[in-house]
């Protein structure tokens, strides 16, 4: 039956395509405008980052990356990603699983809460933690008495990053998990598999591309986050400056090439992310099509119920 629906959709798209075919001029114009827009506002600046980074030669580029504060920033960024991405993956999988496969009270509230970080400005996200853990905040004095430092230290940066990046995995997984349904899992249960085994051997593999996609986006944002991290960082060079903060610092110090050298690493990360994302989308698309084909085949000859 799913097959029938999708066939109807295909018919609808075919029709609308026929509608636009009538004016190739408009089509060409639209594509041209989009292309130009992307080139001017996205591609050129990106190329410029690399051009600026290498403006004073490879040697300086290399030297600025090897400078202790830059190395520390790179290390901190990787460290934050290493903390945040697994946690948010765990959270995302749990949340998506709960939402996609079970009915419970407060489900829609949970979905809304997952989206909260998308709606909230990163600055607010940072300030939340300052208010919570800052010396003037609710928990600050207690933490201070126990000599535990959250904000202006790695935990605070990690918390702010977790906040900002936590929708990514869950958001990617929920639709995939909903589409997969529960039958494969139930099949595993009837074959004697426990919950853990079912999760590892059935649930996870069937959503792996969506999961990877979410992880990659989460990682990209975790490494690139500026606003929230800036609020809780304290900007201590070589200690609490992440790569994006370090880029800003270098730029403000009139160290253009060094700033762009570090920025180029972030841009490179973006390119790798995009590449992986495209690859995963392609994989997912292919699997989805396979699933579609089988659903259509299955639907053939089936009586309407």
């Amino acid at each position: 039956m799913g097959g029938n629906v999708s066939r109807m959709n295909r018919d609808a798209t075919a029709k609308s395509q026929r509608g636009t075919e009538e004016s190739p001029l408009v089509k060409g114009l639209l594509v041209g405008v989009c292309g130009l827009f992307l080139a001017v506002f996205l591609l050129l600046p990106l190329i410029n980052v690399f051009a600026q980074a290498l403006a004073k030669g490879w040697q300086l580029y290399w030297a600025s990356l090897r400078e202790p504060d830059s190395l520390a920033a790179i290390k901190l960024t990787l460290q934050i990603a290493a903390i945040v991405v697994p946690l948010n993956t765990l959270f995302g999988v749990c949340a998506a699983w709960a939402i996609a496969k079970f009915e419970f009270r407060g489900k829609s509230l949970l979905i809304t809460l997952i989206d909260l970080p998308f709606a909230v400005s990163p600055v607010v996200a940072g300030l939340i933690y300052v208010i919570m853990f800052g010396l003037q905040g609710y928990l600050g004095p207690w933490l201070d008495r126990h000599d535990i430092q959250i904000i202006f230290a790695v935990p605070g940066i990690a918390l702010a990053t977790i906040f900002v990046t936590f929708p990514f995995v869950a958001r990617e997984l929920i639709p995939v998990m909903q589409a997969t349904g529960r039958e494969q899992e139930e099949a595993a249960l009837t074959l004697g598999a426990g919950a853990w085994r079912t999760f590892w051997h059935v649930t996870l593999p069937s959503v792996k591309w969506g999961l990877l996609y979410g992880i990659i986006l989460c990682n990209a944002r975790a490494m690139g986050e500026f606003g929230a991290v800036s609020v809780v960082s304290g900007h201590v060079s070589g200690v609490t400056n992440t790569m994006p903060l370090h880029v800003e610092k270098l730029y403000n110090e009139y160290q253009g090439p060094a700033a762009f050298a570090v920025a180029s690493l972030l841009a490179l990360l973006a390119l790798v992310t995009l590449g992986l994302k495209t690859l995963l989308e392609w994989k997912q698309q292919r699997e989805y099509q396979n699933a579609q084909v089988s659903a259509t085949e299955a639907a053939v000859g089936r009586q309407p119920e």
Partner: peptide, 9 residues
């Protein structure tokens, strides 16, 4: 986290 940060300090 707390532990790690406390130790770091």
């Amino acid at each position: 986290f707390f532990l790690v940060s406390a130790l770091g300090i």
